[in-house]
Design a protein around this nucleic acid. Structure first.
Lengths: 193, 193
DNA sequence: GTCTATACGACGATAGAC
DNA sequence: GTCTATCGTCGTATAGAC
C-alpha cells in the first residue's frame, strides 16, 4: 500500500480489475460473463485489460487467490466452526462465486490450467488447518475418534465442497447441517471402539 | 431396439451422437471440446448434428441423462456400498466425465439451464434411495444414529460429490475412505446418545 | 425428417502503432 | 500502458437440397 515506484499505478489498476471481475462474477455468475464486460467496467479495452493478465483463466485464478487471501486475513488462520459458519454465510450470499469456485475446480483438474497450482496448494493447507483444529478438540476431550485427524479433515473438506453442489441446485439446502451432524457423531463417547 | 417407423434411423443417429460425445468428453475433458469435433466423429456437419439437439447444453444434459440411465440399469436401483464402489471405480477411470459432471452441476445452478431439471430430480431421487438403504441397515441393527436417514443421505451425497473435487486435483486421493469413515462412525454402539 | 452450405455475432487472443 | 485492428474458433441461426 502506498507503494512507490514505477509499478504503483499498474498494481492499483490490477487490483481494480480483480475487484471489478469479482463483482461481476458474483452478480452474474460464471457462465456468460465475458472479459469485455470486465474491461468496460474498468474503462479499458479488452487488450488493455489483457495487458495485466496472461489469459482469462489466469485472471480468474487470481480472483480466487484474492478471495482466499481476504478470507485468510478476516478469519486469521482459524478453522473453528464459528469461522466456518461465517464463510458459509458469505458463500450463501454470493452464489455466483460458488459457481465460479466449482467451475474452476473442475477446470483445474488439468495440470496445465493456471488454477491447478492454486488448488494443489489450497487443499493440503486447508487439510492441515482443519486437522490441527480437530486435534486440539480431541486433546481437550471434546471430540473422540479412532480415525486420524488428517483423514477426518479430508472428510470435512469434501463435505463442505459437496454440500455446495446440492445448494447450487436447491438453495433451501442447509449447508451447515452435514458438518454439524458429523461433529455430533464425533462428540459421542467412545465406549465400544 | 428394432423399433419400426419413421423415427428409427433418427433415434439411432441420436444415440450414436450421444455415445460419440461421451467418448470425446471422457478422453479430452469438458474444456476445449467443441461440437464440431463431435460432429466430425459422427460424419456430420455441425448443423447436421444440431438437428438432433436444441443447443450444446441440451446435448450435454442428455449425455449425463444417458450415463445416469446406464448406471441405473447396471446397478439395478441398489444403493449399497458394493454398488457405490463400482461407481467410484468407473468414475476414477474417466476423469473427463467427472469434470463434465461437476462443470454441469455448477452451470445448472441457473434454473434456465437445461440440466437444472436433471439435477433437481436427481438429488431427491438419490437421497431417497440412499435414505432407504440406511433405514434398512438401521432396522437390521447394523447402523445406529439419532440423525434421521434423510439427513444422513444428504451428508453422504455431499461427501461423494465433494471428494471428487479433491480427487480431480490430486488423483491419489482415496474416494472411498470418507464414506467408509462415516459408515464406521455410524456402526458404533449408541451407549451415550 | 435428414442434412449441407453459408453466414452471424461474440468470444479470447495477438500484433503492432502510439 | 493502452489503443485499434484483426485473427481463429466457438455456438447458433437460417435457407434450402434431398
Amino acid at each position: 500500500m502506498a507503494k512507490r515506484g514505477p509499478y504503483e499505478k499498474g498494481e492499483a489498476k490490477r487490483a481494480e480489475i480483480l475487484h471489478a471481475a469479482l463483482e461481476i462474477f458474483a452478480s452474474e455468475g460464471y457462465r456468460g460473463t465475458s472479459l469485455r464486460k470486465v474491461a468496460t467496467k474498468c474503462n479499458l479495452s479488452l487488450p488493455g485489460l489483457m495487458h495485466y493478465f496472461d489469459s482469462k483463466e489466469d485472471l480468474l485464478t487470481q480472483v480466487l487467490r484474492m478471495r482466499d487471501e481476504t478470507a485468510r486475513i478476516r478469519h486469521a488462520e482459524r478453522a473453528d466452526p464459528k469461522s466456518y459458519r461465517e464463510i458459509i454465510r458469505e458463500s450463501a450470499s454470493t452464489p455466483g462465486l460458488v459457481e465460479l469456485f466449482v467451475s474452476m475446480a473442475a477446470a483445474a483438474s488439468d495440470p496445465k490450467h493456471p488454477a491447478h497450482a492454486l488448488f494443489a496448494e489450497r487443499y493440503p493447507t486447508m487439510r492441515e488447518r482443519t486437522a490441527d483444529y480437530l486435534r486440539r478438540r480431541m486433546d481437550e476431550g471434546a471430540l473422540h475418534s479412532d480415525i486420524p485427524p488428517e483423514r477426518l479433515a479430508v472428510l470435512f473438506l469434501a463435505l463442505a465442497d459437496g454440500i455446495q453442489l446440492q445448494w447450487l441446485i436447491d438453495r433451501s439446502t442447509d449447508m451447515e447441517q452435514p458438518i454439524e451432524d458429523v461433529m455430533s457423531l464425533l462428540s459421542a463417547k467412545p465406549d465400544e471402539e
